Deep mutational scan, measured.
Amino acid sequence: EVTIKANLIFANGSTQTAEFKGTFEKATSEAYAYADTLKKDNGEYTVDVADKGYTLNIKFAG
């Protein structure tokens, strides 16, 4: 089991951190699915992958 950390960075400057656990593939998939649910209210997003994929910096356009 691994932990994927998602740093969520919103257009208004606020930030939030979420963690997803499971296999690497499952946790990564859940992180992207979570970002997709936030897209409606926060706009499109870009992802900067860090720490060999264990950290995702997800920035929303607003």
Rank of each mutant, 00 (worst) to 15 (best):
D48K: 08
D41Q: 13
L56R: 01
G22A: 07
A11G: 11
D48L: 11
T46N: 09
T15S: 13
E25K: 05
A27C: 04
I58G: 00
E19P: 04
A61C: 05
S14D: 08
K26L: 15
T23H: 09
D51R: 03
E44C: 06
F20W: 06
T28W: 13
K26E: 15
T23W: 06
A31P: 00
A31I: 14
V2Y: 07
F10V: 03
N12D: 13
G22V: 00
A6H: 00
A31S: 03
F60I: 01
T3L: 12
Y34H: 09
A31T: 05
D48Q: 08
K39V: 11
K21T: 15
T55M: 11
I4Q: 00
Q16N: 09
Q16A: 14
T28L: 15
T46C: 07
K59L: 08
A27V: 04
N42C: 04
T23R: 03
A6K: 00
T28F: 09
D41G: 10
L8Y: 11
K26C: 05
F60Y: 14
G22Q: 02
T46S: 10
E44V: 11
V47E: 02
D48N: 14
K39E: 06
Y34Q: 03
T37A: 13
G62P: 12
T46D: 08
Y34T: 04
D48A: 11
A31Q: 01
I58T: 01
L56I: 15
A35C: 04
T55H: 05
K59Y: 08
L56H: 03
E30C: 06
S29K: 10
T15L: 15
V49K: 08
A50E: 13
E30G: 07
G13M: 11
A61M: 12
A18C: 05
T37M: 15
D41R: 10
F10I: 04
T23Y: 15
E1C: 05
I9P: 00
I9H: 12
A11V: 14
A18Y: 14
K52M: 11
D36T: 05
Y45C: 03
A50P: 04
Y32A: 03
E19M: 10
Y45Q: 01
L56A: 01
F24Y: 12
D51K: 04
G13Q: 09
F24I: 10
T46E: 11
L8K: 00
F60C: 01
N42P: 01
V2T: 11
T28A: 07
D41W: 15
N7A: 06
K52C: 06
K59F: 09
K39F: 05
E44H: 14
A61Q: 12
A35K: 00
Y34R: 04
A31Y: 01
A50M: 10
A50K: 11
Y45M: 03
K39S: 07
L8I: 15
I4C: 02
F10T: 03
T37W: 11
K21Q: 13
I9R: 10
K21R: 11
E1L: 06
E25Q: 06
E19S: 12
N7H: 14
I9D: 06
I9A: 08
N42A: 14
Y34W: 08
L38H: 10
A27K: 01
A18T: 10
T3Q: 11
K21N: 15
A31R: 00
D48R: 08
G53K: 03
Y45G: 01
Y54I: 06
E44T: 12
G53M: 03
F20P: 00
A35R: 00
E44S: 14
L8E: 00
K21G: 08
A31F: 03
A50L: 14
Y54D: 03
A11P: 11
S29L: 14
G53C: 03
K59H: 14
I58L: 06
F10P: 01
E25P: 07
F60T: 00
N57P: 00
L38C: 05
F60H: 01
F20K: 01
F60Q: 01
G22W: 01
E44P: 12
D41P: 05
A35S: 06
T17W: 13
Y34E: 02
T23F: 08
K26H: 15
T37K: 08
G22H: 02
D41F: 09
Y32C: 04
E44W: 08
A33Q: 10
V47I: 08
K40V: 08
Y45F: 10
E30K: 06
D51S: 05
L8A: 05
A11S: 09
Y32W: 09
K40G: 13
G62T: 11
E1N: 07
